[in-house]
Amino acid sequence: MSEQAQARAAVVWKKGGPFQLEDVTVEAPRADEVLVRMVATGMCHTDMIVRDQYYPLPLPIVLGHEGAGVVDRVGDRVTKVAPGDHVVMAFTFCGKCDLCQSGHPAYCREFYARNMGGGRMDGSTAIQKEGKPLHDHFFGQSSFSTFAIATERNIVKVRKDVPLELLGPLGCGISTGAGAVLNSLGVKAGRSFAAFGSGAVGLSAIMAARLAGATTIIAVDTKPNRLQLAQELGATHAVNGQTEDAVEFIKRVTGGRGVDYTLESTGNPKVLRQAIDSLDILGTCGVVGAPPVGTEASFDVNDLMIPGRSVRGIVEGDSVPDVFIPQLIDLYAQGRFPFDKLVRFYPMEQINQAAKDSEKGDTLKPIIRMTRPT
């Protein structure tokens, strides 16, 4: 049981990349850990901003945090999963602090250290190249590798009658958008919602708003193909923010009132201002877009205070992964949450092309295939 796994991993050696495929070894799982043979891993905006050091994690590092695979081995204390189980890997958390205990693990008091520290909490790593450690444990997984180490806490057992290679993005991006609407904002039936940014997160939010029964759902983006897809997935209106004033459009659609909820997923401070200005009285703007550390935004304080508007940050859709991910899978299986329309698959050898296509907006949600499920 102490035997290392031989793996192929995408390593970021320097700021700005590229992802470089390397032969590495992955330690056997410790007592509370799980070794997963990766089938596929979604690529998320956060992978790119860490590659580019917008978030200054230590390098060299193995990224990837939307993993799906098959359990290969488990540590002696693991009881949640067994070899052969299909799993999705989500963010990790301590499970002991007041926020974890109250059902908000995405706001764990140790979230940054556990997910973006570049290793285990004791400073060790599981991945080595030629005997030299590489930083890992990104979101508790570093799943841009053919094998990855996770723990019981951030691993979710999933049903086997859905395509495993499709499910990785439920660990972060898709859950972030859907959870922002269903968990954080609590969009209600008959209410109005606008998604500023119609990438994978924004489109997931639009699908969730339709599930919640929102009757006015507005997509804002600058790419016509995304706006068209948004309408196919549930948006009742769409506006190109490059050719029209999105705030004026939303006010016009809502009879001058604005919408009850907005979600900003672009990370652009100017777009955030539009998302706030588009709110009705007592409306709420959720913020999930991740700009470089230190980015500041501005708004008129009176336009926030007098109408009683709210702005709140949202991490990982404020979800409990063991509960929320299986719910989304059930909805997908019923045809009510067709997130498969967002994805495009790439072999591991094309991981840098996947990143380029994502950054250009040509691909909404790249998924990197590692191996086939058995």
Rank of each mutant, 00 (worst) to 15 (best):
D161G: 12
L272D: 00
T46W: 04
G186M: 06
I206N: 02
L59Y: 04
V271A: 05
L57T: 13
A82P: 03
S184L: 06
Y55G: 07
F345M: 06
R73E: 12
T151C: 01
L166S: 05
V301R: 08
R30H: 14
V315R: 11
V220C: 10
S2A: 13
L263H: 00
D322I: 15
V287W: 03
R369F: 08
P373G: 11
E316I: 06
Q128T: 15
P269D: 05
A5I: 04
I367W: 05
L282A: 14
W13A: 10
A106K: 04
I314P: 03
R114D: 04
A214Y: 05
G267A: 06
P338S: 10
P83W: 12
A113G: 07
K188N: 10
H137M: 14
S143N: 07
N268P: 00
G173M: 09
L35Y: 01
C285E: 05
G117P: 00
R37I: 07
V34D: 03
V36S: 03
V158M: 11
P338R: 07
G361V: 06
A126V: 10
G103A: 11
Q228P: 04
A68P: 09
A9I: 06
F93R: 02
T79K: 13
S102N: 13
L233H: 07
L59G: 04
D52G: 07
I250K: 00
F147H: 15
D340H: 15
F19K: 03
I329V: 12
R191H: 14
L227P: 02
D260R: 04
Q353M: 13
A219D: 00
M348P: 02
H65K: 04
N302P: 00
R336E: 15
C285K: 03
L35Q: 12
I49Y: 12
P291I: 05
V26R: 01
N225K: 13
Q53T: 07
F147N: 00
K188W: 12
E248Y: 02
A355N: 03
A5E: 10
T92H: 08
G179Q: 04
I155Y: 05
A208L: 08
S204T: 08
G308S: 07
T151Y: 07
L59Q: 01
F111Y: 14
S142I: 01
T266S: 07
M370H: 11
T266V: 03
Y346G: 02
Y346V: 06
F299V: 11
Y54K: 11
V315G: 02
D122E: 05
